[in-house]
Simulated assay, not measured.
Amino acid sequence: MAIAGKNAVIHDKILNKYYGARSDDVPKEVVRLAEDRASVVSGRMSLFCTVFMVVLFIANMMFSVRSSTVVTPHFFLWFVPYMIVSVALHEGAHVVALCICGRQADKIGIKINYLIFPAFYVRMNQVLLLPVPDKVLVHIAGISTNLTINLILFVLNSTWVHSSDLGHSLAFAVVALSVNALPVLNSDGYRCLLAWTDVNEHIDNRRNPRWVVGLRILSWIIVIAYIARFLLNYMVW
């Protein structure tokens, strides 16, 4: 069992299941058996990393606006390989950050978010056993890595390569990362918000704070709107 902040999480290693409770509701006899694990990073460091990620976003956005609007038939020769590498680096950064914090990933694979959006993922149930600063580090690791590499490539492209296709690929990556940073659709931004507020999401909505339930409802509204728009465009064509 691990106790971090106001949350207590019990990991059944035999069944590989996780059970959550309020720290105050856990008997003192059980608390004594809890795993005593200090944070790998401090609260200030996790705050610095979050702010630095925002700065990276702003810098990437500035380069995106300056990107050329010209696209050649060779666009996909840049776009497809870069997106594959970006996804691999993104998920790899999550795994590395989790290992640095003394935990391991449960599974790596492909899933369908909200029954419609395909995505690669790293199942990181053990992040529930981490203190808040470490949780934040793990959840922002993927986006921060992508933004850093993206910015380096933006600079190299503007000063040396001068490829409009590469510029478009980088700009598209920024858009995808921006969507992943929004606190909806089970994104990294959503997980980071849960970490900062020291909230462990429960399957049973009745145990979640109202704002978490609200974000879940908003996510479904976005999915329904997306499907409706797709069907409308299909009917028009």
Rank of each mutant, 00 (worst) to 15 (best):
A171Y: 00
G167L: 11
L170V: 02
V179Q: 12
H162T: 14
H162C: 15
V179C: 15
A171S: 13
S178Q: 04
H162N: 15
V179D: 13
V174G: 08
W160Y: 08
D165I: 09
I152H: 00
V155P: 07
A171H: 03
L177T: 10
N157C: 04
N150Q: 13
V155H: 02
L166D: 05
V155I: 15
S163D: 07
N150H: 05
T159F: 10
L166R: 03
A173P: 01
S169N: 05
V155S: 04
V161D: 07
N150C: 14
S178D: 07
V161F: 09
L156V: 10
S178A: 15
V161Q: 03
L151H: 01
T159M: 07
A173H: 09
L156E: 08
F172L: 15
S158A: 13
H162F: 15
L153C: 08
V179W: 10
H162A: 15
S158K: 06
L156P: 08
N157V: 00
L166Y: 02
V174E: 11
V179N: 11
L151N: 05
L177R: 02
S164P: 14
S169M: 12
H168Y: 07
L153M: 13
I152C: 14
A171M: 15
A173M: 14
H162M: 14
N150R: 04
V179S: 14
I152M: 12
T159A: 05
V175I: 11
V161G: 01
L151V: 02
L166I: 05
G167V: 09
N157Q: 07
V175E: 07
A176T: 08
T159C: 12
S163N: 10
L153K: 01
S164D: 07
L166G: 12
L170K: 01
T159D: 06
L170G: 05
F172W: 09
A176L: 12
S164A: 14
A176G: 11
L177V: 09
L166H: 00
S178W: 04
V155L: 06
T159N: 12
L151K: 00
T159I: 09
W160V: 12
A171E: 06
V161N: 04
N150F: 00
L153T: 05
W160E: 08
H162S: 13
D165R: 05
V175Q: 06
S169Y: 03
H168N: 08
S163I: 03
F154P: 01
V175L: 10
I152S: 07
L153N: 04
H162V: 15
S169I: 06
F154E: 01
V174M: 09
A173F: 04
F172Y: 04
L156R: 03
L166M: 13
T159Q: 13
N157W: 01
V161C: 12
N157L: 00
L170N: 05
L156K: 09
H162E: 15
H162D: 15
S158T: 08
N157R: 02
T159H: 12
I152R: 04
S169E: 05
A176Q: 12
L170E: 08
